[in-house]
């Protein structure tokens, strides 16, 4: 058996010599699910900016309206930086196979920003409470909630302003969809979907 030296090549061809054919079904899969971008792996500052640049170029190419483009960009920034700051990396086998994922979907109505990452189970209750509170607020209440946090809270030790989810909800104008899936007794997989609808031209 041939030894594969390059890690990237090994990943691309791991199912055998004919697996380059998989690029086509993968393309079909992305088209069928309206996916513009899929990323799976560690999310850090460097990856965040690469993903942002790719998505921004894509929206520019599509001639997307400035306001929509900026809203999608802002949601992506908060989502990716949230993961870079808060994703956990539990030292156990069950959780270690789960990487962070980041997807952008797009159809004629809008953009869908989806992320998934591992967190410690003991964070779930607090996150659920914060997300449910945000989803219960209308536009004006979200604004006052945002201003209240900005004026009163201190920055966290990770430099966060505790405003990320609120900002995402404000840019979206819709409910934040989220779920937690238990991986094991210690860790959960947190999935978050934010939609940004295009402005309807009357």
């Amino acid at each position: 058996m041939e030894t594969v030296k390059n890690e990237a090549i090994k990943i691309n061809f791991q199912t055998g010599k004919d697996s380059y054919n998989n690029a086509f079904p993968l393309q079909e899969l992305m088209i069928g699910n309206n996916l513009l971008l899929i990323y799976r792996g560690q999310i850090n500052d460097h990856i965040t900016h690469s993903v942002l640049t790719m998505a921004e170029k894509n929206m520019e190419k599509n001639g997307e309206e400035n306001l929509t483009k900026k809203r999608v960009f802002n949601v992506m920034v908060e989502c990716l930086q949230n993961i870079a700051k808060h994703a956990d990396d539990p030292d156990n086998q069950a959780a270690s196979k789960y990487n962070s994922i980041f997807l952008i979907g797009h159809d004629e109505d809008g953009y869908y920003i989806i992320s998934g990452n591992v967190i410690y189970g003991n964070k779930v209750q607090d996150m659920e409470r914060r997300l449910n509170l945000i989803n219960s607020l209308d536009k004006e209440s979200l604004k006052s909630h945002y201003m209240k946090i900005m004026a009163s809270n201190d920055l966290t030790d990770k430099g966060g302003a505790s405003l990320g989810f609120v900002e995402m909800a404000r840019k979206s104008g819709n409910q934040l969809k989220f779920s937690f899936e238990a991986i094991d007794s210690e860790s959960q997989f947190f999935v978050l979907q934010t939609s940004v609808m295009k402005k309807k031209v009357a």
């Binding site: 802002n74 930086q81 900005m150 004026a151 920055l155 966060g160 405003l163 609120v166």
Partner: peptide
């Protein structure tokens, strides 16, 4: 500024 994240927003405040 044309874009700023929430932690920048907090610091600008």
């Amino acid at each position: 500024l044309e874009y700023f994240n929430t932690s920048s927003s907090k610091l600008i405040y």
